[in-house]
Design a protein around this nucleic acid. Structure first.
Lengths: 360, 360
DNA sequence: TTGAAAGCGGTACCAA
DNA sequence: TTGGTACCGCTTTCAA
């Protein structure tokens, strides 16, 4: 016959009894409230130590109606356990930024993955509400338009790396127009005048915005854009073999032009890497014969490629920070001109490495 | 003058009142308990709907002393907001595995990052306890030995991707001996007999274990290991320039041997990628002139390299699943032979691609 | 099949 | 400076 501990964790009553004070006094010590006589305080603290007392957030929450909890809904962290892919990298950095702000504000994150299904999203939002999270961050792993479920409107919510198609929820997204602009400018500013652009699928919102930026940069530099120079590498996402083939075709087209480009901007670093591999096979050297600009700054690629890749970074950490700050402000009721800038776009810097030749 | 809502969320009492029943009946409906007359049940459900009622986990927790919460402590997700690196990739996959199991068990994760400082770890463990998590998963981002703080012993805890130096806590780690074995065997089985091994720093536990596996494989295949063939690429971690130089030296040494290797196993995929870059510069072709085997299966690298890289995968998703399962079993008091297998090692498969030439 | 009342572990109000 | 007591929202025990 075994003897079970009646109560495993000590309560504030146990502490009060041990310290021969009332619970209220213990509570005062806990919250560093008012003035408690130092000797009393010391006694209480000791009792807490001895009993290994840990206050219960649940009880505290009931009284105060505050949890210090933020719910983070993400699609990338834990989705599709079977697909080993590099997906998730953006989310990690987004989370870095979020976490750093939460820390400073004494908030704790509950992280849950929505996976693929929308009903799962509903369910998770519900779970969050049951836990009385004070706000929700909805994190996408690539810049996209979303239609948030009704439940997200019932709590302070900020969208990260995505936006409400009706613009009713505050959002923080990458500034892809600026991104495209900077990518083009990276080449333009080094004297390149014929710049190829291998874009991601047109269905992605980033693609169109970057195209726009690409054009604007040319305008600003008073350089004419040859439409034959910007090519959509169609389904440059899956599977890898198809990607490689699509890229090779696009590349052939570009390099067989009467006036081939001296530089090529890529839709992302992965594409740039494939480009490296292809060019190597053809024996064209980077950056001597052709300059390359990437997008994303996946350091796994950009730092390891030879020559190291000049690329436009996406400011994921900052985006996470900004989104978290906005959420906390909203929770605390700090009115921050909610009128304008519902969706806020953050631009990332060009990371200069060695894949762009200076033609000047 | 603004009017504030007195209470924003409905309680069980509000529902009871609206449905003209007692709170107990509402509770019964909530928990699908006993038999409630269908008509009553329907009425209660409707009232819940109308009031947008969401039960409070805090209140429920107080009564039942159960939270359904698991605390996940990690070093990689959100640490060092300033270092953009590929770090975090293992953790993401580990989390994938963990999440998939938590889902099935109806548990929710609280994720917190310990960053660098040990006292932060203490503090987070404390926060978890305040939230009455029912168990803790301590996740490292590379295979290492740790000395867990006392607080981790007070709750069911499983170490993931690391182990307690005194083996007092259950742990799930990669089987690096098997990994080294399989890497070598990938080459041996294709007829290679002189295989180079470019290892990670010897201070990493993975390095020694993989070395051991490398040797065991040679024994099994009755192939003599030339000690001159296994080289530690010293500080092959940072900064990139130094890495590249260290690698070049090691490579020169290897290829200038009287009998150079026909295949090279790399400590990780990053190193393999650097190897590709270097070999390309020297004009030696893969796999015709030299075969390469990687480690980690970072698909960002392995799928994009040309030829695609044959590598030994680390079973992060499975590790996460296994760790989560063990934790839940421990929480539920399912005695699973705690005597043996305190630390459990999981081996990952060789992912066959095209960087190893068949010599047979 | 349904309800009344106690209690979980804290905090808040008011009194001493 | 300290204490008594009601109460937060739910579940449990027991009774009707």
């Amino acid at each position: 016959m075994e003897i079970q501990e009646e109560r495993v964790v000590a309560t504030i009553y146990d502490v009060a009894q041990a310290a021969r004070v009332s619970v209220k006094t213990v509570s005062r010590v806990l919250n560093e409230e008012a003035a408690v006589r130092p000797s009393t305080r010391e006694r209480v603290l000791q009792s807490m130590q001895q009993l290994n007392y840990t206050p219960s957030t649940a009880a505290r929450t009931m009284r105060t109606q505050k949890t210090g909890l933020i719910g983070v809904l993400t699609t990338a962290i834990t989705s599709a356990p079977t697909t080993p892919d590099a997906a998730g990298l953006p989310s990690v950095n987004l989370l870095k930024g979020i976490q750093s702000v939460m820390d400073r504000s004494g908030m704790l994150m509950m992280v849950a993955d929505t996976g693929e299904s929308p009903e799962r999203l509903e369910q998770l939002a519900r779970t969050f509400r049951e836990h009385r999270v004070e706000g929700i961050l909805y994190v996408a792993d690539y810049h996209q338009s979303v239609s948030p479920p009704a439940s997200l409107f019932e709590l302070p919510t900020v969208l990260v790396n995505c936006f409400d198609e009706h613009q009713r929820l505050p959002a923080v997204v990458p500034d892809d127009v600026a991104g495209g602009y900077r990518a083009a400018e990276a080449a333009l500013s080094r004297g390149h005048r014929r710049i190829g652009f291998l874009t991601l699928p047109e269905t992605m919102v980033a693609t169109q915005l970057r195209n726009q930026g690409f054009l604007e940069a040319h305008e600003a530099w008073e350089v004419q854009v040859d439409p034959g120079l910007v090519l959509s590498v169609g389904k440059f996402l899956d599977p890898p073999q198809e990607e490689a083939r699509a890229l090779r075709h696009a590349l052939e087209q570009l390099l067989n032009l009467r006036e081939p480009p001296t530089a090529i901007c890529c839709g992302n670093d992965k594409m740039a890497m494939s480009l490296y591999m292809q060019l190597q096979q053809w024996g064209v050297s980077i950056p001597e014969q052709l300059s390359v600009v990437g997008f994303d700054d996946y350091t796994l690629i950009t730092e390891l490629l030879n020559p190291r890749l000049t690329t436009v970074a996406l400011p994921y950490v900052e985006m996470g920070q900004r989104a978290a700050s906005r959420l906390i402000q909203e929770i605390q009721g700090v009115a921050e001109d909610r009128s304008d800038r519902i969706v806020e776009a953050l631009a990332g810097p060009v990371i200069w490495r060695h894949s762009v030749k200076d033609l000047r």
